[in-house]
Simulated assay, not measured.
Amino acid sequence: MAVSLTRPLAPDPYSLLPVVPSFTLSSDDLRDGERLPDRHAAPPNANVSPHLHWEGFPRETRSFLVTAFDPDAPGPSGWWHWVVVDLPVTTTTLDRGAGALHTDDLPPGAFHLRGDDGVTGYVGAAPPPGDREHRYFFVVHALDVEHTTVGPQTMPGAAACGATFHTIARALLVATYQR
């Protein structure tokens, strides 16, 4: 018996969190609501993290957490593709490719967590072939602390959960992808 991958669209995961003010997230690579370019998808594509830039966050912001999450992945918990922790408040841009392993593109003190695939750094879109279109939430969380209490071995979901209690504003951009 074949398993059907057709299932209802998952809810917007951020609509389930406490309401916080928003700010602006833009990208030279992504457009909100549009298809993610192939170069930002997982191998055999280039698997390059997109350029992200944010502005208009609250004056009280002390640091940022950046995430890329697919709530439409098979299974009940979605899939974490990228988590960058402890970005200083002076950082308002991640250049294209900043999610690469062993990169010096992150400011001192900031670091990548392992995504759900076990890789530290960015892993691009990889919905199962033939599955419906997936949404990829690229999110910048403005935090009220300079440093989170997570370490490099922290699981992405745990980092996101902990950040919820320190998020004072949030910016998001949603791209889609289907194979």
Rank of each mutant, 00 (worst) to 15 (best):
M1W: 03
A2R: 08
T6R: 14
T6L: 15
T6V: 13
T6Q: 14
L9P: 06
P11T: 10
D12G: 12
P13Q: 11
Y14H: 14
L16A: 13
L16N: 08
L17S: 08
V19E: 15
V20I: 10
P21G: 14
S22C: 05
T24M: 08
L25N: 01
S27G: 04
S27L: 01
S27M: 01
D29K: 01
L30I: 02
L30M: 04
R31A: 13
D32S: 11
G33V: 01
E34V: 02
E34R: 10
L36N: 07
P37Y: 02
A41C: 15
A41E: 05
A41K: 04
P43M: 14
V48H: 05
H51T: 01
L52I: 00
W54L: 07
F57D: 06
F64D: 00
F64T: 01
T67A: 10
T67K: 05
F69K: 13
P71A: 12
D72C: 10
G75T: 13
P76K: 09
S77P: 00
S77M: 12
G78L: 12
W79S: 06
W79G: 00
W79D: 14
W80G: 05
W80S: 14
H81I: 03
V83N: 13
P88V: 01
V89L: 09
V89H: 05
T90C: 04
T90K: 12
T91M: 13
T93P: 11
T93Y: 02
L94P: 13
D95V: 02
D95R: 06
R96K: 13
G97L: 06
G99R: 04
G99C: 08
A100V: 01
H102I: 00
P107I: 03
P108V: 15
G109F: 13
G109M: 14
A110M: 00
R114K: 15
D117T: 06
Y122P: 07
Y122W: 12
V123C: 01
V123Y: 00
G124V: 04
A126W: 05
D131F: 03
D131N: 06
R132G: 14
E133W: 02
H134V: 06
H134Y: 06
H134S: 12
F137N: 11
F138A: 10
V139T: 15
L143Y: 06
L143M: 11
L143I: 00
T149M: 10
T149S: 14
T149G: 13
V150S: 12
G151T: 13
M155H: 12
M155Q: 12
P156M: 08
A159P: 04
A160P: 00
A160M: 13
G162I: 03
G162H: 14
A163V: 04
A163N: 09
F165C: 08
F165T: 13
T167S: 08
T167L: 05
I168P: 06
L172K: 11
L173Y: 01
V174D: 04
A175N: 04
A175Q: 04
T176W: 02
Q178T: 07
